[in-house]
């Protein structure tokens, strides 16, 4: 039986079967400021009263701003089965040059802090956050660009 694939938050990234997977933000039509997570009602730039925002894909690649890992199971609402052993994952904050923005995300499975360095180039890839209530929760992951040595 195949499980339903459900984005952990709707509208934050393209479907995970798309060939060019991207995070999705919004851009103010008036002042061009980009927002992620998306703002759909009103621009947050202080000098702008824009209310028309359009969806834009964020840059697929960026450079590591910082990183860490989670050695202990986070509390709810993090989807994690307490009956299973805890497997640490990395958290990577990535600087996107075009947007001038740092975006946090989990590292792809198998990426450890030993594989990472500040300044390293990474790319966004589709990933699975957890299985929950018969659904597969999908998310975005950051992964070192192949050939990028730590």
């Amino acid at each position: 039986m195949s499980r339903t694939r459900t984005p952990v938050v709707p509208g934050w990234f393209t479907p995970d079967d798309t060939t060019a997977f991207r995070l999705l933000g919004t851009r103010c039509r008036r002042c061009r400021t980009v927002h992620f997570p998306r703002e759909d009602a009103s621009c947050r730039a202080p000098g702008c009263a824009g209310t028309a925002l359009e969806e834009v894909p964020l840059s697929p690649r960026g450079r590591v701003w910082s990183y860490t890992d989670g050695r202990y199971r986070p509390p709810a609402p993090y989807p994690s089965d307490p009956g299973l052993p805890w497997r640490p994952y990395t958290l990577i904050a990535v600087e996107l040059a075009a947007e001038g923005m740092v975006v946090l995300g989990q590292g792809a499975p198998g990426v450890t802090v030993a594989d990472l360095a500040v300044g390293m180039e990474v790319e966004v890839v589709p990933g699975v956050l957890a299985e929950e209530d018969g659904r597969t929760l999908t998310t975005w992951h950051w992964r070192p660009v192949p050939g990028e040595a730590s």
Partner: peptide, 11 residues
């Protein structure tokens, strides 16, 4: 605050 725990487990 709920989202950062839900989506990332970012404590």
């Amino acid at each position: 605050d709920w989202l950062r725990f839900r989506v990332l487990g970012a404590t």
